[in-house]
């Protein structure tokens, strides 16, 4: 039986309070109240008094690993991490963006998260479907037992079965709706480039106005940049104001990377990201 959200919130407050009180961290990243219960905001607690503002409920989907790279290296940070967030933290450690020693990871085993927009349960359809954090120092609640009902790549079958032209029409229809608000980039814990390639003027990789060519360039290159790094939290598609199913493409790329290189992103701090690594015995077959 999974620990209730209320219980996790209590545990989160206690543990965060302990850490801040002992001076082990200078801030704790967690969730705070938004304008209503359905829209919690990322929240930074810097002192014991701030801890009361924390909340945790089924709509706390935002990936807090996004905010780790904002602070100078060496800042001691406590972070509340759900399953996907913990994978993002591992991936950031692999990429040497943060150091393991600087982090205190408060793992949250989570079951029954909901999408604030549609009120649907968030499961392996749009995310990796894991329940328990992969890495943590303190676990706030009991581990969730059992396997996800779906395998994370099952949703791909429909798109994979399409013919080339049909699939292009599908993606064109989806990506043409993009209004280039860059919410996907802002929500993504792995998108930390400054400046992003699409903001560069020399060379200008793609049109910045929302039109077919620029949209295609932006999204395809973003999928490529996240290849072997995307930890499948699905936050990009939840952040998207026009509901483009970006998770489908990310899942496909993640699946191919897993098949070709034999490793999933963000599962172990000892690995290197797939695309900045190689094996001499990689087969040429992957290019066919």
């Amino acid at each position: 039986m999974a620990t209730s959200f209320k219980q996790i919130e209590e545990n989160l407050k206690t543990e965060a309070g302990k850490l801040l009180d002992a001076g082990k961290v200078s801030m704790v990243l967690a969730y705070g109240r938004g304008y209503d219960e359905k829209h919690p905001l990322p929240y930074v607690a810097r002192s014991l008094a701030d801890v009361d503002g924390m909340v945790f409920n089924e709509y706390c989907t935002a990936n807090l690993a996004r905010y780790l790279v904002r602070y100078p290296r060496g800042t001691k940070i406590g972070i509340a991490a759900k399953a996907a967030d913990s994978r993002a933290v591992i991936q950031l450690i692999q990429e040497d963006k943060v150091k393991r020693d600087d982090l205190v990871i408060l793992g949250i085993p989570v079951y029954g998260m909901k999408n604030a927009k549609t009120d649907e349960a968030i499961d392996a359809k749009t995310t990796c479907g894991l329940y328990n954090p992969v890495i943590y120092d303190v676990l706030l609640g009991e581990e969730v037992h059992g396997q996800p009902v779906l395998s994370p790549y099952e949703v791909l079958e429909k798109v994979e079965a399409m013919g080339q032209d049909e699939r292009f029409a599908f993606w064109k229809k989806e990506l043409d709706r993009c209004i280039r608000c860059y919410a996907c980039r802002k929500a993504c814990p792995m998108c930390y480039c400054d400046p992003c390639f699409i903001d560069q003027n020399k060379p200008k990789w793609g049109e910045k106005s929302p039109e077919t060519g620029g949209n295609l360039m932006y999204h395809l290159t973003r999928f490529h940049h996240l290849a072997g790094r995307c930890i499948d939290c699905g936050e990009c598609s939840r952040a998207c104001p026009v509901d483009i199913p970006l998770y489908l493409f990310h899942k496909k790329v993640a699946k191919e990377c897993e098949e070709m290189f034999g490793q999933a992103a963000g599962m172990s701090i000892d690995e290197k990201p797939a695309l900045i690594n190689f094996r001499v015995e990689d087969s040429d077959k992957i290019l066919e």
């Binding site: 699939r167 292009f168 064109k172 999928f223 490529h224 790329v253 695309l275 190689f278």
Partner: peptide, 15 residues
Amino acid sequence: RRRLAVTKKILEFSG
């Protein structure tokens, strides 16, 4: 080799 393999898969999946 790894990078271009991914490029190929992305092109393929985009149609």
